[in-house]
């Protein structure tokens, strides 16, 4: 299935901007495509940009966490960009832990973060 989420390779970093609402099918597909791309390219960093996603519920958070953990198995570190304070606070209050997934304020900072880890 062709999903309208671009995967942009920038040096040693894969940038994934999520600009649309993801259905379950698209999310599963994205998960697979991202991991395949990491495997093909050997990038050491994954930056997922959710700035344009208004609400991150436990479903999307779980996808981000799972992608992060799977990427780690492929020697790739993940940083999520664009999590607003309201989203972060809400997920924390729900009892959801971001364990293992780092966040950054913007894409530049995220890229610098993953590059310094590589």
């Amino acid at each position: 299935m062709k999903i309208p989420v671009p995967l942009l390779k920038i040096g040693q970093v894969l940038l994934v901007p999520i600009e649309i609402e993801l259905t379950d099918e698209m999310a599963e597909d994205l998960h697979i495509k991202v991991l395949k791309k990491i495997e093909e390219t050997g990038v050491r960093g994954l930056v997922i940009d959710v700035s344009l996603v208004e609400v991150i519920d436990s479903y999307l958070a779980r996808i981000l966490i799972n992608i992060g953990r799977a990427a780690k198995c492929l020697n790739c570190n993940t940083v999520v960009v664009g999590v607003t304070p309201e989203v972060a606070l809400t997920l924390t209050q729900m009892g959801l832990s971001w364990r293992g997934v780092r966040t950054a304020l913007n894409v530049e900072e995220a890229i610098a973060l993953v590059e310094s880890d590589a």
Binding site: E54, V55, I56, D57, T84, P85, E86, V87, L89, T90, L91, Q93, M94
Partner: peptide, 8 residues
């Protein structure tokens, strides 16, 4: 924040 609670 309350709005985010509602929408979530």
């Amino acid at each position: 924040l309350e709005r985010m609670h509602v929408l979530t």
